[in-house]
Design a protein around this nucleic acid. Structure first.
Lengths: 213, 213, 213, 213
DNA sequence: ATTTAACCGAGACGGTACGTCTAGTCTTGAT
DNA sequence: ATCAAGACTAGACGTACCGTCTCGGTTAAAT
């Protein structure tokens, strides 16, 4: 669960770490994100509200974003677990709706935006997000899709990573770029379109077209 | 071309504006973005390198991002114009490849990331991006898709905004989240999958499909 | 009066300097020195109490000590002006008593100690003190001594800098090292001893000396 | 030899003290003073170089200055012992020269400045310096002067503490305030002037004085 | 042709936060 | 209980920028 063990941390002795301070920092960050927002929250403010020296934050986290990531980690996955009801399309829709809801959660949503924003410059953070957030969700999706293939609900003739791009891409397109509104209907429409495909059915080509392709 | 006329700017007299300073600012910003990167570039640095007072920047642009946006605007659209060769799938593929190339351009790419990042907190910037970058590209795409529907290459039974999400979503998923690599093959794979759809073939078509493979 | 023009200051434009800020800084420093003491006073505290950015202090003064020096400068010399009543010994005594009083002034005294302390490490400050405090006092003393020589009250057979060492050295010995108490009687005793000399009287001169006293 | 037993230390059990650590600390301090200088030397640095916990320093010494004082103590007095050759003036001169040499010693000198500096704020340190450094030197001087009085080389009509102020004051005036250079000639000039006195010779005594010199 | 009002370069200003440093205290084994 | 080690709270350091605010100088329209 601790993020800083992943890579480039240098020296401090984990075994002597104060759990009390760690919790105070994460709690303070949560309060501040909720009240003044991620971008207005300084490391000084976290330290001061947590009753903690700044150095204690700098010692254990490489950046403000890392604190926020660690603070959200325990909450993210339980809220976007992958269902398997046997109906792949229905499961994809309900999972996507959970993702949409999470992204629009008034406390989590802005933090998530902030983490993605920061990760545009910060490759270490980007890697953390992939490892701890996106990766597991993608892997769970991949497995659900494989089960769907086995159940004959998904063509076996598809690179699953491409499939994942199609299912989730629309969400990121609308959420991060704000080019169009996002709601549960969008999830339904995307999943339906992905399964059906956008090729125009011609009377003949419906049968032959398959052969032609 | 000037962005600041859109909304809440107060008073300065456009007719007296120094084109010389405007150019110096945009040029300085371009150099700095290329050398030290968007996030390390301060408004002070732009002013100093441009030989311009800070106030001159604050007078005409609301933020560093707005400068960078204006600086890239003339270059973006010519590089992602929408082709119409009559073959919708081929046109989508080539347009997507142009987008991927632009995003991976060593000077434009990081700026684009930075603008998207900043727009997560800055709704005004987000609106500018939609108006000046994403909106026109989406509108051009929508028209190409409509032409494709008229030509019987795209099902008429589709919300075009959903179609656009499918075509472009994969790109944003991979580019902004860095969950998987991006290259021209990806564009081909996405467009093919979007047209074909992911549903498993029905028993009858399955036999044919199997034969086909 | 401004100290920073003396030497190594680099760039800031004196003519644009805010006299209002300068005064606020010196006043805040005076208050803080009086309340919490020089060594507990931080530059942050001065800035905060003065309602001034820290940079404004760093821009115009090289150190906390320089602020304190400038703040005391207008007050020092008026309090230790050199009298010339025609009686050299009496004048030396009254000047020394003024110096002792100043050093024991409850607000100036500790600052003076602090400046001397700091000047032990800080050669630039030391030079400032010599230029602005000790030098002028020494020069005034030298002139008074020359007048005394002309008046036949001081042997002409003496290096005046040595004479100054004798007159003032006792004060610094006791004040800075705290090896013995300091009061007006000390001034009298030192001046008398310096004039008289410590050689034991020769048998003949002993009789006269006794008669003289 | 240990200084901290003098006064306000609270509890630690001297008998359990590690001589090994004590030596390591004093040696590390000596090295650091010589290399980076007293004012750049932190207690952390001493502890780290000595391979000792910070607490071990805080336990046994009240301040960095106390460490440095203890580290120099064994070396100071042997270098400024008071000679008694029978010639008081000559002995004063040679002792003063030893003091000047010590103050200008490249390793001891800066430490001595630093201790005097620190003692301006720190009364406990000041008392230690008087007890361990200045006091013994003054007492030795006082005894030598008394012997000189007995030998008829020093007037008996003088407060010996005033005499000491005259002999040493010039040194502190020049050394601590840096108002003039210090060398062996200065010692000679001061001692001569102190014995002779600065009063202008009266016509009769002038002749005698000349004969006397 | 002169006024006059804006923009302009410059940069000082009040602030905020940065990331680093050190002080002095506290905690954890090991001796 | 002392010791080495080092994490802890606390807070100052000096720097970098923020966005605002003068200050002359320089245009360019309006007199």
């Amino acid at each position: 669960m601790a993020l800083e063990s992943d890579s480039e941390r240098v020296a401090p002795d984990e075994s002597r770490r104060s759990e009390r301070s760690r919790r105070a920092i994460l709690d303070a960050a949560k309060e501040l994100v909720a009240t003044i927002g991620y971008e207005n929250m300084s490391i000084e403010a976290i330290a001061s509200r947590a009753g903690v020296g700044k150095q204690t934050i700098y010692r254990w986290w490489p950046s403000k974003a890392a604190v926020v990531l660690e603070m959200w980690m325990p909450e993210v996955h339980p809220r976007i677990e992958f269902p398997d009801t046997g109906d792949l399309a229905a499961d994809m829709k309900s999972q996507l709706k959970a993702v949409i809801d999470l992204a629009q959660d008034p406390t989590f949503g802005p933090s998530f935006r902030a983490l993605v924003a920061e990760s545009q410059y910060d490759e270490a953070l980007s890697a953390q997000l992939v490892t701890h957030i996106f990766g597991p969700r993608i892997e769970a999706c991949r497995q659900r899709l494989r089960a769907g293939q086995a159940a004959g609900q998904l063509t076996s003739d598809i690179d699953l990573d491409i499939a994942i791009d199609l299912f989730y891409g629309g969400f990121y397109h609308r959420h991060l770029l704000r080019v169009a509104p996002l709601d549960h209907d969008h999830a339904d429409a995307v999943v339906d379109a992905v399964f059906r495909g956008l090729a125009a059915p011609t009377p003949r080509s419906r049968r032959k077209g398959a052969a032609r392709n």
